[in-house]
């Protein structure tokens, strides 16, 4: 499957990762165009259900990125996020969703280059998963 048709959703915290993605843009770092970024105030705002909702709606991959542990703008939102998202990650195989389609990580406001690399790598990873197991979308009706 060509990467242009991949659909990847990213939940980025406003203070670190969104700013990091901005930084990558300011440095004109080329990235795959399959990512749609949704801005949230904090990775702690990301209800794991939003990730599942994205998969239900047919996302090929979901990325969540917050401030590095210890650097959360709100003190400890990313620590809560880490617990919730790790649990989610480990539940995905039970649901039959390849855990390679989901990634959570930490990118700071100054890590533009790291962000660009991350998007490239994650897109590649989703691409590989997609080749192995296409058609993720939960079908409405059983044919």
């Amino acid at each position: 499957m060509p990467r242009e048709t991949l659909k990847i959703v990213g939940f980025l915290c406003n203070w670190c990762s969104y700013a990091g993605a901005d930084m990558a843009g300011m440095a004109r770092m080329r990235q795959p165009d399959s990512l749609r970024i949704i801005r949230v105030p904090c990775s702690g705002r990301v209800d794991p259900l939003l990730v599942l909702k994205a998969f239900q709606e047919g996302a090929d991959g979901v990325l969540v990125s917050g401030c590095h542990p210890g650097d959360c703008h709100y003190g400890n939102g990313n620590y809560f996020a880490r617990r919730r998202l790790e649990l989610l990650k480990r539940m995905l195989p039970v649901l039959g969703i390849d855990p390679g389609r989901f990634h959570y990580t930490w990118v700071s406001a100054s890590e533009g280059a790291r962000w660009a690399r991350l998007v490239e790598e994650f897109t590649g990873q989703v691409e590989r998963v997609q080749e192995a197991q296409p058609n993720l979308k939960i079908q409405s009706r059983i044919p």
């Binding site: 904090c42 702690g44 705002r45 990301v46 939102g77 919730r84």
Partner: peptide, 22 residues
């Protein structure tokens, strides 16, 4: 301060963060 951690922790979603509601 509007982090929304509560919003993701509330099962029925009755606490919501203005600007970043469910």
């Amino acid at each position: 301060r509007g982090c929304g951690i509560c919003s993701a922790a509330c099962p029925p979603g009755v606490i919501s963060l203005s600007g970043y509601t469910d």
